[in-house]
Amino acid sequence: MIEKRLKTRSVNGTMALAQNIMELMLPAPRLVILKGDLGAGKTTLVKGIAQCIGANAEDVTSPTFTLVHEYQGTKLKLYHLDLYRLEKDEELLSLGIEEMEADPNALVLVEWGEKFPSLLQRARGAVVITQGEEPDERWFFVQML
């Protein structure tokens, strides 16, 4: 298991830090749970990872209402899921997470995935984001199997 604790003090810092975190996620395929309170920076981290794989970071938004967004990079595909509005494991079936996981060139990043025991069992890692002492300061605790 790989464990790292990283800190950033700005949105731009989080975007830059995404490169280090993404390298820990490789090789694909990889399902990673993103944990953090609302506004912690989960989507900002995904923007940074999208930029790292060659996808347009400006296209990245929180998939709260659509549940799944897909971004194609130069070599990797990024799936970004937000399960905040879901409550039961059965609701996950229609999302096609198994197919996403089976793609050998895919990173699957799941916000609020810790609510679902079935995802926690399949996850190959987690990034926990917490607020620091300053308003824009964030701590990233990265665990990868």
Rank of each mutant, 00 (worst) to 15 (best):
M1T: 10
I2N: 12
I2G: 07
E3W: 05
E3S: 13
E3R: 14
E3G: 06
K4R: 12
R5F: 10
L6F: 02
L6E: 02
S10D: 03
T14Y: 01
M22A: 15
M22P: 03
M22E: 15
E23G: 11
M25G: 07
L26E: 10
L26A: 12
L26C: 09
P27C: 10
A28D: 04
P29G: 04
R30Y: 04
L31A: 04
V32H: 00
I33H: 02
L34Q: 05
G36H: 00
L38Y: 02
G39H: 08
A40T: 00
A40F: 01
G41E: 02
K42F: 00
G48E: 04
G48R: 04
A50E: 01
Q51R: 15
I53A: 01
G54V: 08
N56L: 10
N56K: 13
N56T: 10
A57S: 14
A57R: 15
A57K: 14
E58P: 08
E58Y: 01
E58L: 03
E58D: 12
D59R: 10
V60W: 07
V60I: 04
S62E: 06
P63M: 07
P63C: 02
P63N: 02
T64E: 02
F65G: 05
V68A: 00
Q72N: 15
Q72G: 14
Q72H: 15
L76Q: 04
L78S: 03
L78M: 08
L81S: 12
L81D: 12
L86T: 05
D89F: 02
E90G: 09
E90R: 14
S94Y: 14
L95G: 07
G96Q: 14
I97A: 07
I97S: 02
E98K: 15
M100I: 10
E101G: 09
D103L: 11
P104Q: 12
P104C: 09
N105R: 15
A106V: 08
V108C: 13
V110D: 01
W112I: 08
G113P: 01
G113E: 07
E114M: 03
F116P: 02
P117G: 06
S118L: 14
S118E: 07
R124Y: 05
R124M: 11
R124T: 11
G125D: 00
V128Q: 14
E134S: 10
E134F: 10
P135R: 06
E137T: 11
E137N: 09
E137G: 09
W139D: 03
W139V: 06
F141E: 15
V142N: 05
Q143C: 08
M144N: 08
L145W: 12
